[in-house]
Design a protein around this nucleic acid. Sequence first.
DNA 1: TTGTAAGCGTTATCAA
DNA 2: TTGATAACGCTTACAA
Lengths: 353, 353
Amino acid sequence: MTRGTAGERVVLGDVARRAGVSVSTASRALAEDRRISAATRRAVREAATDLRYVPNATARSLRARRTRTLGLLLADLSDPVHGLVAAGFEEEAARSGYGVTFAAGQGDDARERRSLRLFAENAADGVAIASTLLDPTIARRLVPGGRVVIVQPDSPRLPRDRRTRVRGVIRTDDVAGMEAVAAHLVECGYRDVAYVGDGTRTSDVVRHRALERALKRGAPPLPVRWVPAPDAAWRAPEPVVAEIARSLPDVLVCFDDKLALSLLDALRARDLHVPDDVGVVGFDGIPFAEISNPRLTTVVTPAFEMGRRAAAILISAVQTGTMPEAETLPVALAVRESTRVRLAPAGEVAPGA
Amino acid sequence: MTRGTAGERVVLGDVARRAGVSVSTASRALAEDRRISAATRRAVREAATDLRYVPNATARSLRARRTRTLGLLLADLSDPVHGLVAAGFEEEAARSGYGVTFAAGQGDDARERRSLRLFAENAADGVAIASTLLDPTIARRLVPGGRVVIVQPDSPRLPRDRRTRVRGVIRTDDVAGMEAVAAHLVECGYRDVAYVGDGTRTSDVVRHRALERALKRGAPPLPVRWVPAPDAAWRAPEPVVAEIARSLPDVLVCFDDKLALSLLDALRARDLHVPDDVGVVGFDGIPFAEISNPRLTTVVTPAFEMGRRAAAILISAVQTGTMPEAETLPVALAVRESTRVRLAPAGEVAPGA
DNA sequence: TTGTAAGCGTTATCAA
DNA sequence: TTGATAACGCTTACAA
């Protein structure tokens, strides 16, 4: 028995020897190179199967100067939205034969930089960053080829308006989402609207402002109260609800579903009934928003699809060498049980007419 | 300017040249090798920083025959339990300087094998498999070193009893969990108990049987009805609830929280009130079980911790060469609102006395 | 159509 | 304490 048949690692040389050809022929044969005769190709394939040959991607990557690996950095893997983004990212990457290595930043700047460095050392062909506070410019610097796509950027440094053109950014159309929310609130006859959010994150500011603007454009124009809720408020919503209860608004528009659902629970603990005492609107459309009690009215965002697009864009960037322009994915308002028509019964009464 | 200062990739040779030493010295210096003088070490470090040198992990891995990378294969990344497992796994791996590459099997056998093969080609130092149907023996064969740890194995092929000793397996103490559930059910005075699950997955069978046995041991012994619910029933629970409604049990013990929560919603849609008309018990303790309405009584499992342990065990196996024995992590019953004392008011009446 | 040999960027062996 | 040099396993000019 030749070497390689035993416990030793089987390498291409072993396959070549068994097939009675040279290493280069074996290499080409396994790559289905047309220059190698069909017979030789089959012989090599068989030798490879017999020996249970597993190609060494490390050696291949070193030689080829590309790893067929994508890096994915996100804030928290256990978050439902991020889980969906990651799932979509992995699915698309796998479809194209790319591996995915991932890291969670946990909102810790040092950790995020360390992760990007790890991606760099491991020579990821591209990197996606989802919902982290990291400055995109810094992120691009930390990734050698600059092949970075940012999903739902939350850095305060990124231009907030829709006109500025950026490359390699994927976001949801939060403005349109909030416009739909505003229209729905008006339709329901809500007057005293409160927005609940932390007041600093980019996506929070974007959503908050979009809501304000849309409501200001109405007839009559409606103001929006702001109820501050720290970033982790969804883990301990009671203080926020206490603040809310001091002067109950008609409806609460929440930064995201996690917050909205936890508020639902905390409101119930205070015997405040949704939607009778107060309406609640979420943002994201996570699965549990569909089966909460009451079911949550929310803006459904395509989290899984964002992940897919991020991977697709990266792979295309790797292959073409140019990073596609920013994409904004559509969202949809799902009206459910946590909001309802308030004053007049639903009808032909044009609001403000 | 020497080569490497420009856009070209900076390699160790560039650092060595700038520091005025040889490549080998530079390599050792960056590895903080004691044999290199402190002065030289600092000089090399500085050169590296100046040039923004990023070591090439691919080359290092090729030479060192280990990648400092772990593979994680799970069924569905967007599932809350898996998300937590993944988060724990990544955290522990990162703590030890390991990267994590992951893949989702989506219950597709071919896809799972392909993922394991990808891990093999990329020479992951170890692989963790969570909640997949893959036969552990096959899994071990597909991973070169056999360094596999299986989290919550769901293969029908794995020995189900607690005596058999296996290596590299991490599971939760589902039997103890169901015993606690049984005790709670008895305490509540439930008589007509139904178990809802798909009837095939290992964890389903384990939980089902454990519940049956625990209830059979009571005084009086209680039987358990079985309500079949296909694997994906939580996406479309209506047919299951229809079946349940034909003859309403006192309490539903569900395979997992996802199923329990979706049943909660479907029951409500039918005007069946929980816990007044029927009690509901879940399993897993996912975050939303704490804030559902009613809040879900469930067996809380340490999903995040399972991920941590899996990574820790793998890393130790990589370093020591031996795979630690199976671990069973403790669970805890969380009694919440979806179950309640039924017949007699809560009191000193010993059940069955 | 196939073989020879160079080289990807490290680390480790052996000398000095 | 440091330096030359040979691997690691693969792909790809360049030859034949």
